[in-house]
Each structure stands twice: as structure tokens, then as C-alpha cells.
Computed example of a mutant assay.
Amino acid sequence: MTADATEFIDAAELDEAHATADQVQGALALWRSGPPDHLRSTLLWNQLHRARRKLEQRRVQLVRRRLLIVEDQVGDRLCEVLGEYDCTVVRDLKGFWAVRPHLASMFDGALVDLHLRPGYEDRDGEIVVDAINNSSALPAVVMTFRMPGGFDVMGFQRRYNLVSVVTKKDDGPNGDFGGVVSVVREMFAADVGTKLLETLEDTLPSLRRRAGKQLHLTGRLDGMDMMHFKYNKVVDVAQQGDLAALRHAVSQFEIEFGLRPGNYRQ
């Protein structure tokens, strides 16, 4: 394992002019979920996280970006207008669950339609971004043709650590998807992972306040000490600089203390 760590760090230190896409991809494949926990107490821990961020930024420059599109009606059209990327389309939840175990290894970003069934009454896209957020560092954009009434866009974006929520001008094959293309390009900016990490870190103080309020409302004041202990564990994860780990830690904290809202209506 130490040999893998050395190889990982050495790959990040390669001169930019000589690094190849295969070298970068091969190094990142060593630890798709980040450095293993048993290295946490070693001097390698912070070096490995810095190396991983550097390799991910270099991959942006060297490798054609791989985009997962979760869309039930105009996925093929989106592939055409987003032809600069290597696109994969799935059209429903069943298709998404089939690729979910491979999100980190197969894709660099996701474009998810909020409604995946006719009639725009479902919120299946919310299930998709929740699963992405709870299991990976994949940046994601949510799109919709018809915003639900009273939909709290900013709250939804913060909750799922999204790059953006964008409205499609049309939901037909001849529609204008220029706005979607612009947001996808923003998603693949080199520093998007850092921005998403900082955005999530900014929400941590409110996470503790919400948990304390929930304990008061449910009469579980004896759980305050444990809540503060668990919150400090989340802060410890934040200090690692690992977006996937922090997303998962926040999600688990929210589940444990009853903070998972059912929807995003004001």
C-alpha cells in the first residue's frame, strides 16, 4: 500500500508537459474513493489528498470529459449539442441504478432532469442527485422544463451540493439548449470541485443549528452531547478536503438527526 501511495504522489509531481492522460487516469484509479483510512495517522495523508486534487485538475486538461445524462425525452438531442463531451444517456431510475456503482470510474459530471416521467408530476431526478451526492464527488447540474410551484431553487441547489439548477427552454427535439450547454461547461471548469467543497463547508454551521432545533422540537435534549460529538466528526472530515467523504458524512448526519426534508417547497 505504501508503494501505491508513492506511485500516486509521484504521478501528481510529473512535469505537466510530460504527463499523459493514461498516467493520470491510472494514478486516480489506485484509490477511487480516496486514501484508505489506515493512512490517516501517517505523514502521507495530507500529501495524498493534495496529490489527488492536483491529478483531478490535470485530468480536466488532458481527458475528454465523460458526462452522464439522466433524461427521459431529449437525451439524444442533448448528446448532439454537447458533442464536445463523451455522453452516456439513461432515461429512468432503473437505468441510473445500473450505472450508480460505477459513477466515480465512468463519469466526470452528471446532467439530471428533475422529471423523468410524463406529466411532470414526479421528482425522480431528486432521487438521482441524492444518490450521487451520498456516494461520490461527482459534480451535477439539475435541469427542468417546468419548475414545480413554490420550488425553492437555491435551497435545492445547496441541499444537493449542485453546480446549478437550469431551466430548459423546450422539452422537444428541436428545442434551444444553449443555456444547458453553458452550465455544463461551467460544471467542467477546473476548480469546480474546490468550489463545491467550499460551498458545502459553508453550510456546516447551519447543519448544527438545524440539528439542535430538531432535538428541541422532538424533546430529545438528552441527545445534544451526542449531536455535538457527531458534528465535530463531520468537521474533522471537512478538514481532509475530500468532497465525496464530506458529502457522505453530511448526509449520514442529516439522516441520524432527522434533517432530511421531504421536498423543497417554501
Rank of each mutant, 00 (worst) to 15 (best):
M1L: 09
T2E: 07
T2A: 08
D4R: 08
D4P: 05
T6V: 15
T6P: 04
E13M: 14
E13V: 15
L14Q: 07
A19E: 10
A27N: 01
P35S: 02
D37F: 10
D37K: 12
L39P: 01
L39V: 05
L44M: 13
N46E: 12
R50P: 08
A51W: 06
Q57E: 08
R59K: 14
L67R: 00
L68P: 00
E71I: 05
D72R: 04
V74Y: 01
L78K: 00
L82N: 06
T88I: 06
V89I: 08
D92T: 07
R100W: 09
R100G: 06
H102M: 05
L103K: 01
A104T: 03
M106P: 01
D108L: 00
A110L: 02
L111H: 03
D113Q: 01
D113V: 00
H115N: 04
L116S: 13
Y120Q: 04
D122K: 13
D124R: 14
G125M: 02
V128S: 12
A131L: 11
N133C: 10
S135Q: 02
A137S: 15
V141N: 01
V141G: 04
V142E: 00
M143N: 04
M147G: 13
F156D: 00
S164D: 11
T167Y: 05
N174H: 07
N174S: 09
F177Y: 07
V180N: 07
A189P: 09
R208W: 04
R209H: 10
R209V: 00
L215W: 02
M226A: 14
Q239R: 08
G241N: 06
L243A: 11
L243P: 02
V250K: 02
V250M: 05
E256F: 15
P261A: 04
R265W: 09
